[in-house]
């Protein structure tokens, strides 16, 4: 399949890129292109112009910023996976990123691109939501921080405004005592997650003190399993954990599609949350 025609520009600065986008409502940001190009090839999108931000230095790299890790929007999944600070201070990001697509796609696909694409079946959005990441957006009007909980608005829709570009995401470092797991359930290695569970669990004295759990593909956006988080607080790793995790499907509205119906997804969310929490708790 062949994309329809579009214009192309590769601005030399972030400011210039913002201007380009502000000037044309139908223009789209081109990051690594790993989600966008298949859409263009299938002619499911007809942008007038692609604004290629792939080489903007302001969006590059993974940086240690003391209390948080700043992942530049154009850091590729591969760079994120290789990042020392990610592996040391937010390993959940690495665990989930390792399951994104395949190595070749991870070489091109970007962390920011995955977030801005806001696909609830993507692996990265749930992790950023679980970790209370803060997304940084820039426009001609300046920069603003968007908490992950406010970033994902609907299916393939983020709260980025016209003319705004995602610069990167701040992932708070959780400190000692936390364990992590990303449990992804898929039919084949390449397939999208039917359900995914990102779990961070802090244990001390044999009990779960605190947890952060978010679900992939259980709603039009990634969702936090707040009911489970609340139920788990202070709980021993005994039989009740399963019951607490059974709350994970509360407040979800999973899609029904070719690969799974909503009731099965809800069931999986319960089972997989239990597995994710146990593994996260065990990995402390």
């Amino acid at each position: 399949m062949i994309p329809a025609q579009f214009g192309y520009t590769r601005p030399g600065s972030l400011a210039e890129a913002c201007q380009e986008l502000a000037a044309d409502e139908e223009a789209k940001v081109l990051a690594g292109g790993q989600s966008l190009l298949p859409l263009l090839r299938m002619r499911l999108a007809y942008p007038t112009k692609l604004v290629d931000v792939g080489r903007l230095p302001e969006l590059a790299g993974v940086h240690d910023r003391g209390d948080h890790v700043f992942i530049g929007a154009m850091a590729t999944h591969d760079e994120v996976l290789r990042s020392g600070v990610v592996n040391a201070d937010c390993p959940l990001v690495a665990l989930a990123t390792a399951t994104v697509a395949d190595p070749a796609v991870r070489h091109r696909g970007t962390f920011g691109g995955s977030l801005a694409h806001a696909d609830p079946a993507g692996d990265v959005p749930a992790v950023v939501l679980a970790l209370d990441g803060v997304l940084v957006a820039r426009s001609a009007d300046g920069e603003r921080d968007i908490p992950a909980a406010e970033f994902f608005v609907d299916y393939l829709e983020s709260s980025l405004r016209q003319g705004e570009i995602l610069v990167g995401v701040k992932i708070p470092k959780l400190g000692a005592g936390w364990g992590f797991h990303y449990e992804k359930f898929q039919r084949t290695a390449q397939a999208w997650a039917i359900v995914g569970v990102a779990a961070a669990v802090r244990r001390s004295n044999g009990a779960i003190q605190e947890s952060r759990i978010a679900l992939t593909n259980m709603a039009p956006t990634p969702v936090r399993a707040h009911a489970t988080e609340t139920a788990l607080a202070g709980m021993d790793l005994g039989g009740e954990v399963r019951q607490a995790c059974a709350e994970a499907a509360a407040d979800t509205s999973p899609p029904g599609d070719l690969h799974a119906q909503p009731d099965y997804r809800r069931h999986l969310a319960r089972v997989l949350t239990h597995r994710a929490v146990r593994k996260a708790a065990g990995s402390v």
Binding site: P38, M42, R187, T188, A189, Q190, A191, W192, L258
Partner: peptide
Amino acid sequence: FEEAVYDAEGNLLTSTLADYLVPSAA
């Protein structure tokens, strides 16, 4: 893994390799 799935209107729901699941080495 594999099935060519048609809906009740006769649309093929597995028209790409993203939906028609040919297994990989993994």
